[in-house]
Amino acid sequence: MMQIVDFTPVRGLIGGSLIGLAAVFWWLTAGRIAGISGLLGQILETRGREGLWRWCFLAGLVMGAGGWMLTQGISWSVRFPVPWPLVAVSGVLVGVGAQMASGCTSGHGVCGLARGSRRSTLVVAVFLASGMLTVFVVRHGF
């Protein structure tokens, strides 16, 4: 049966708004969609100074998260629901998938949906369904 756990709507809404603000700010300054996988993919493809501002964005992302966790003063342990070989497998899946679909939860999910792209809507629906199915199989299938 469905059971609701660990629901934090207020933090979710505030955090989501901040993500939205970040996406808007990125559009206003860099004139680009704030897609994490897109940025990362372009960094991997281009060499030299071209990629500098992309590095800055990603560095900011890491520092923002790290800074917040520091102020919270709680120990930050990332717990994975699966053992490490599966972590590696899913890393590859996410990488290949994001590259092929030319976007991930940020590019398609936030920016794509916000500008009403049909393509992004389809991608989001597909990866949500596929993710839910995967969790179902892993958690309840055995």
């Binding site: 699966v82 998938g97 389809l122 995967t134 969790v135 892993v138």
Partner: peptide, 15 residues
């Protein structure tokens, strides 16, 4: 695009 989204979802759900 669709295959990519499916693979992405699988990895996302897994980890």
């Amino acid at each position: 695009l669709v295959v990519g989204a499916v693979l992405f979802g699988m990895g996302w759900g897994l980890a």
